[in-house]
Every structure is written in structure tokens, then in C-alpha cells.
Design a protein around this nucleic acid. Structure first.
Lengths: 195, 195
DNA sequence: TAATATACCTAGCGCTTGCTTGGTTTCAGA
DNA sequence: TCTGAAACCAAGCAAGCGCTAGGTATATTA
């Protein structure tokens, strides 16, 4: 076994880094800032990570993994196509705006800051995630709930949801649930099915 | 008159900067890189701009102005609500992906890199732009072409269109016109009206 | 043709960045 | 209680950053 289980401190660093990367961007978050936010000196970070990019990698991996698990769970618990479509939208928005939201946000906004090598390692999780989405959208188009090209629909819907990180603030005017309701309505032209 | 008309060189710098800011981001575009891409030495940039942020300001101002003029023109040439909705979508996508696309893209992706002071100066153009959008969407909802809360619809539609900068490459698989068609279909559930 | 402003270059300053090195503390297991 | 590894710190290096100062070309106008 070469994989060492992440230490408590490492987990803390990933969590704090996620917050800072979201607030200031990866480039403008210095190792000194991250260190002082954790009560460490800057040099000590490199006992836990070999370089700054490895921190970003850990954050994004965490964000992708979490969001994947969330929608897998959502889809397991819902069978009807209307329920499934709403569930995947809601799941996506929950990991973007709920608790521990920062990592998923960073995995979207800072993907471009990863090295090509890192992208290669993480693309599998992303592809998995998108495959789940594509499946649901294909079904929804077949059922006549959505209209248009399924692949483009996936990009349009995910795009509009991802873009919410630019403007949505949970519980300010709208709850995450309400946001999901409205998104569902905009794309399907019908209200969310009552449970 | 305190406003001096921009020199040829300045225009060239803004255009090249737009390209580089889009390709590498503002933070990772050094003044040395921009200078050498224009055949200048790094110090000479500061004869045209007082600092690096002023370059970003000029790029974003250009991008906002251009896109505003485009949709104003589009709306002037179209009267029916279906045509107007399609026209504003198409106009937005054209400034994002057509010729001179870089500035509009940067005005979206690098807005957060502006100082608060700069944002204040430019927010007026952005507000104008969004007001045109809101107007069209309000009309479309009234006419029953779109379903849902008009304000949120604006955010969802613009979000999905803005997100295309992450994945769309003009003329590779789809033309900009086709992309606009598909977007219109996804949100309205009906095909674009024939001219 | 001389005067003047504009455009550019050379050289480098001062600062911040990610990261390293070498030594010290902390703490779990024998 | 001793020992070794893991976790941390103090100090600072090398490189890159935005930007400046002072001088030189180039072009315009009188």
C-alpha cells in the first residue's frame, strides 16, 4: 500500500484552501496566506504537500468526488424520470451551495489552473459525473420533458447551474430547493412533481 | 476635452491583451509577455497605460461596449417577440464567439480581477446590457414563450450562454447560428421562427 | 531647419512569490 | 523512560513580478 491515509492536518488544509481558493482564486491565494489561516508557517505546508499545485489537486479531487457521490445517491433514491431530473439538478446545486460547497465550486472555477497531468488523472471522475447527467437527460428527452439535442441540453443545463456560483447566495432571497425548482421549470416548462 | 482618442498602438495593445487574457488569464499574463507579443519592451507599456489594471479596464470596457451595441442593433431590427428573443441570444453568442470575441469573453471571465473602483465605472454598461435582456425576457414570459420567474430566467439563460466559453469552439461541430438555434429550442421548447 | 512632443529602449529597483534547508519540538510505541 | 519518526519553525534563496528613471530615437510642426 503506497497510499497513505490523509492526516487530520492535511484534511484541514484542504478544507481551508478550498475556502480561500474560492474567495480569492488559486493564483491570488499565497502559501503564506493559507499557512497563517491554519496557524502554520509557510514552509510547513510543504511537509504535507510537495508543491502548491498538489493542494489544488486535493481540493478539486475532493470536490469532484463529493458531487459524484451526491448525485449517485440522489439517482438511487428516485425512479420516475421527472423525479430523477429534478433530483440531479437539486443534487448539483446542493454540492455547489450547501455545506462543504467550496471544493465543488473550486473544481469548476479552477479546473484551468491544473497542470495537464493533473487534469488527466481527474478527468475520469468528471467524465463519470457527466455520464450520469447525460443518461438522465437522454431519458428526459425521450419522455418529452426536455426539448432539443441531448448533448447540448446537458451543456446548457449544467452551464446555467454552474453559473449560479457567480450570483446565487443561499438563503438570501431563495433557498437551494427553490432555486432547483425554478431551474426545473425553466427547462421543462412544468412544475416539479410533488412527492 | 480631457479624453484623448486612443492611439493606434493603444488599440493594438488592447486587442492583443484581450487575446492573452483570454488564453492565459489576467494574472498569468505578464507585462513582459504582452510587450513581446506586440514587439515592445515591457517598460514601454507604461507609456500607454499607467498600470496593468488599466489595460484590463480598457479590454473589458471594449468588450462590454461592443456587446451592448450588438444587441441594441439586433433589437432594433426585430419586432416580434420570438424574433427578438432569438436575436438577443444570437447577438450575445456572436460577440462571445465571433470576430473580436476575446474582449467580451474577458469582460465575463475577468470581471472579478477589476478593482472596486473600476467595477463602479463599468457597472453602468453591464446594467444597461442586462436591462435589455430583462425587457425581452419579460415580454417572452408574457407571451408564454418562456416559463418561470423572469429574473431567474435571465440568469439561467445568460448563465448557460456565458458558460459556452468553456466548451464551444465556433465552426468545429456547430456554427454560432446553430448554437443559438439549439439554445432557443432548449428554453422555449419550440423551433426558431423562420424569417 | 530648429524646436518640441511623442514613442520607445536600457537597465534595474524593490517586492513578493513558491519553495528549500537545517535544525527543533512533539508524541506515539517499545 | 527512551527512541525514532512525524510535524513544525526560522531563515532565507532564486526567480519572477509590476513598475520606474533617465536617456535616445522618431515624427510633427513652426
Amino acid at each position: 500500500m503506497t497510499i497513505t491515509k490523509p492526516s487530520l492536518r492535511r484534511k484541514e488544509l484542504v478544507s481551508v484552501a478550498a475556502r480561500l481558493f474560492k474567495e480569492n482564486s488559486f493564483d491570488r491565494t499565497t502559501v503564506r496566506l493559507l499557512a497563517s489561516a491554519t496557524g502554520l508557517k509557510s514552509g510547513s505546508l510543504f511537509h504535507h504537500f510537495k508543491d502548491k499545485e498538489e493542494i489544488l489537486f486535493a481540493v478539486i479531487e475532493d470536490g469532484l468526488q463529493r458531487s459524484l457521490e451526491t448525485i449517485q445517491q440522489e439517482l438511487k433514491n428516485n425512479t420516475g424520470i421527472e423525479e430523477r431530473l429534478f433530483a440531479i439538478i437539486y443534487g448539483h446545486l446542493r454540492t455547489l451551495h450547501g455545506q462543504e460547497k467550496n471544493a465543488h465550486t473550486v473544481s469548476i472555477t479552477e479546473w484551468k489552473s491544473l497542470s495537464e497531468e493533473s487534469k488527466k488523472k481527474l478527468i475520469k471522475i468528471r467524465d463519470d459525473y457527466e455520464a450520469y447527467w447525460q443518461q438522465v437527460i437522454d431519458e428526459a428527452v425521450d419522455a418529452g420533458i426536455l426539448k432539443g439535442n441531448p448533448q447540448l441540453l446537458r451543456l446548457f443545463i449544467l452551464g446555467s447551474l454552474n453559473w449560479t456560483v457567480q450570483w446565487f447566495q443561499a438563503e438570501k432571497k431563495l433557498s437551494i430547493k427553490q432555486l432547483a425548482d425554478e431551474s426545473y421549470l425553466s427547462f421543462t416548462h412544468q412544475a416539479v412533481p410533488a412527492k
